[in-house]
Write a protein that binds this DNA or RNA. Structure first.
Ligand code: ZN
Ligand code: ZN
Ligand code: ZN
Ligand code: ZN
Lengths: 405, 405
DNA sequence: GTAGGTTCACTCAGTTCA
DNA sequence: TGAACTGAGTGAACCTAC
């Protein structure tokens, strides 16, 4: 009976692991060059895709099994002999025989799995390199607190679906949609110059690079995002500039937490072809304490069960319109009341949104946590701005970027 | 010392391994000039068509082996000597010797296989090119959903045979035949200016080109098709123009789904010498969302087991006679009842046709699916028309084409 | 050590052009 | 016609997580 292509699922994967483990236990020593490929009778080293097969059939199967059927054709009558020296003659029959003899296409990794694997390898390589080159005080940041396992998946999977309902009025609803749209537009309008078909891992070797590449893109996107917000447009030009200068960098780092992929320990704006940035690389920029504290804040965010991208986007705006230097920098005449009102629009929106989604009890705690952590970032950034010149040659940045520091 | 391909038995493994290793090793080292052509004794590089042969015999064999036998004649007595410097003397004997010494004509690719290979190369080239120079928004459309396995072959093979029987009256039958004929005529009357003997792959680099070349041809053909339909002829001139303007573009895209070759990922009107258009190229026109949604619809169609070109053609007409803007565009005085009747003729025809071919149970579901998806296209096109100017300079199109937007 | 993927030199189809 | 060339596919050798 030919295999009837089933959609494989999680359980398949578990099964694979199981099978492999059992096999290891039972057949321990004996085979090495003593096996015969069940497909072509060539020499086999062991199991490949759940059948004892040779290297060539392994590669053949990997390359062809997932191709849509029907592409391969048999020139004979569909039962060509597949032997060691004739295996190349008929692909169709070779593939059929592979399947017949029990090779499983479900065990071929998907593109996504391959990508993940690649990331993991790259990460380890980098890690090793760091260890090798600079084994000075490498005071490792706690690279993983293994405790909070599945919280992270929440973070990944939270869908941002808004169900129009009681609390949120039509206007609120459209406002949120506009935020989503504005953000998506902002991302689209500021593309990186990536080349590869799958996102590449781009190393970062210095603070300057950090600010010239990933943070620069983020900044541009955020500013584009702001510019699309009506309430922002209604501010004076001066006020616009003031708030962007004052708060963008904070938001950039808030944003970086937002795009951090906890699973793979990389920074990557989802649904883009942006390069991937390894956390390890970021860690080696600026200084250790900065990232240590940032990591704490990041963890706090990730531990929030309700990590929601709409909340994040609203917070971007609330942060943008915050003026914590009310007294210090009175160089510019800010219409405080107006800004306050604007900020309040989004505070209210956020509050209603949270009430709707998370209920009364959770909401206040949730907002408190968000706010607290954002204020921590603000503080950290304020401190950083005053010492930024210690970590890079600021004149090497674009003027826009300089103005954000 | 010629390679005599004996079948090795199980126990011969060692020998086989030896042989294989030898062949590989020797082949790799003394790659050049150590082999001898079994046909003409010239220098050979390796196997060609399953016999060790030189470049010239390889080319000779490819060019001549598939020619009808008897065309070549020997001027001697059929056993001319074929040697390095005499090989050109007698084609007949050279070909005979090729066959004798084991060259296989089955291994010469057929025209179809060659075409497929060409497509594959072109596709890769295009893919590479895209990644090289235009690395903006490269967000890959899910290029293949591996789920739908053999459905696709159905799509290819559905024959359009109509068996005259109970349900379909003589008139229905002739109507369908007329549709088929009208369509074939329309295709014939609007030929592309292709010259080559096999269809060429024609690249498309912009939305403008898309509309100037493949979609233009499709439009012309469809309009020619409509013009041959009696019910269409009976409409007022104004009404004709109205419906053509209103619906042709929708039908053009419906048609594009119809001519999409799932196996090769190309667009090509079957049985013509039209150029081939790569799906990859289409994907880079207009915008991503448009093609993404169109792809979904395409998949829905391909997943219909009953993908039948008669149904398609009837639906072209039903779509043509649909007036979904009844209220909005009342600029022209449409005899709604008349049009409705006309559309109904084809609705009934379609219904009977489906009943006949697919039975009662399937029919309603089938028609529902078709209709739903066509309405999706309609919607997509309506949206597109309002923004078409963003994607190309419309004035560059022919007037007819402009009027369809 | 096993069994996934990756790499790259190599083979053999077709294609080009003097 | 055939020498030179192109590119998809093959498989041995290799890399790495588990
Ligand atoms: Zn094998
Ligand atoms: Zn076969
Ligand atoms: Zn020869
Ligand atoms: Zn002769």
């Amino acid at each position: 009976m030919l295999r009837n292509q089933t959609n494989y699922t999680e359980s398949d994967r578990t099964l694979r692991k199981q099978t492999q483990r059992n096999r290891r236990k039972s057949a321990s020593k004996r085979y090495k060059l003593l096996l015969t490929c069940v497909v072509c009778n060539g020499d086999a080293h062991g199991y490949n895709f759940d059948a004892i097969s040779c290297e060539s059939c392994k590669a053949f199967f990997r390359r062809n099994a997932l191709r849509p059927p029907g592409k391969l054709k048999c020139c004979g009558n569909g039962n060509c002999n597949i032997s060691f020296d004739q295996r190349k003659r008929c692909k169709k029959c070779r593939l059929d025989k592979c399947l017949q003899t029990g090779m499983r296409k479900e065990w071929i990794l998907t593109d996504k799995e391959k990508q993940e694997k690649r990331i993991k390898i790259e990460q380890n390589r980098r890690l090793k390199q760091i260890h090798d080159n600079d084994n000075e005080h490498q005071q490792q940041i706690t690279r993983r607190s293994k405790t909070d396992s599945e919280l992270s998946t929440d973070f990944q999977n939270v869908s941002s679906s808004i169900i129009c309902q009681t609390l949120l009025t039509e206007i609120d609803w459209s406002r949120i949609k506009r935020l989503q749209h504005a953000y998506a537009e902002a991302v689209k309008l500021n593309q990186t110059a990536g080349i590869s078909q799958y996102p590449l891992i781009q190393p970062i070797y210095s603070t300057l690079e950090l600010f010239r590449v990933p943070l620069y893109i983020s900044s541009m996107r955020l500013i584009t995002f702001f510019k699309q917000i009506p309430e922002f447009q209604q501010l004076d030009k001066d006020e616009q500039v003031y708030f962007v200068k004052l708060n963008t960098l904070t938001i950039v780092f808030l944003h970086s937490i937002f795009i951090y992929d906890y699973q793979n320990e990389i920074y990557h704006e989802p649904n883009t072809n942006d390069p991937l940035y390894l956390e390890i690389d970021w860690m080696n920029t600026i200084n250790k304490e900065f990232h240590y504290e940032m990591k704490q804040i990041q963890m706090n965010f990730i531990n929030l069960k309700q990590f929601d991208d709409n909340i994040m986007k609203i917070f971007f705006l609330i942060t943008l319109f915050s003026n914590y230097f009310t007294f210090q920098y009175s160089t510019i005449n800010i219409n405080t009341l107006n800004v306050f009102k604007t900020q309040n629009i989004y505070n209210e929106l956020l509050y209603k949104y949270c009430l709707h989604h998370y209920g009364f009890n959770k909401t206040s705690l949730l907002l408190l946590q968000y706010t607290t952590n954002i204020m921590k970032i603000q503080k950290l950034i304020t401190k950083f701005k005053s010492t930024a010149h210690n970590y890079m040659d600021i004149t090497q940045l674009t003027p826009v970027m300089q103005s954000l520091l």
